[in-house]
Design a protein around this nucleic acid. Sequence first.
DNA 1: TCCATTTGACCGAG
DNA 2: CTCGGTCAAATGGA
Length: 332
Amino acid sequence: MEEILSLIFHGCKLTRDLESNLQSLINNPSLLASSCEDIVMAFSRASDRLKALVTPVPPELEGGVQEWQTANHTQAMVMAMLALDPFQSQLFSDKNPFDAKVWTTRDADGSSSAKSRGGGELQAAEGSDTGKNQRSRKRKDGVEKHTIRAAVPRIGNMEIPPDDGFTWRKYGQKEILGSRFPRSYYRCTHKSFYGCIARKQVQRLDDDPNTFEVTYCSHHSCLMSSTTSFPPPVAAATIPPELLEVETTQPPLSTNLPLRRWDSMELETDTPTDLNLEISGSFNMATTEAPVTSQSQDRDAKDVEWPVADLADAIFNSGSSGSDMDAFFGPI
DNA sequence: TCCATTTGACCGAG
DNA sequence: CTCGGTCAAATGGA
């Protein structure tokens, strides 16, 4: 237990360090990214050890626990980014041209099928499944995947998935069983030149054609792919693209951010409470029920499952600027 | 001519 | 055998 506490304290310390050095680090995104990663790792390890202390999980629930852990991990990263970036609300506010309600999850095992992806990001696929059992198909490579949802842009061509700051080349399209819309496959434009292995899959949701589900596979190893000044090499290697986009939507630290975004976004940095972010993950440990937002969850029954959601609530409802770590970690 | 997209074929996991 | 993911030839636009 002492080791766990030590890990937690370490995470808190790293967080405070980061906060106190934020101004000086803000021009060093690669160091910033690595600091975030350290924080996430510290809390993630503590979380893992805590779970090892509790009653052994029945085999049939293990997958759910893993997903819960990894969902926590990713959400912690989101939280870290939210905390670091007081301007992030633009991305998630309804002023975003993509109406970007972003669900961020991460596959526990890199599998890509609807069944193996627990939680909610695939609820559409499952919902549209006409009762047929879809088998889990795990790739041997076990590539880490990150899935987000982004609403169709309200401007321009609504068939085009939201720009995530990277340049992609489409290499395939496939009709997916049980889905009305085909799934598109993209790889990094600079694959041949830089050997960048980043890929993504884009699919419109059956039950919400205005929303794209974007699954990122692997990280960018190229420097040229981004249409923004980010990401630096380290950030590209450690932070999923959807989080990097959070970074890239900051007010121009360096000035070559995509003009389209800034043109189409109103910057109201003094209204941080105007948030429209919904974060979901695989919170349901033993069921396949769709996840719900922190606002609608029955808190009495599942309080134990919502520590991160509580954090999100604290952030979103606190009216804080988002940069005050004490608001999130103070009690600890 | 170059580059991105389309699309049918193929591969491999389950 | 099914079906998701990828390949690569064909096609089209700049």
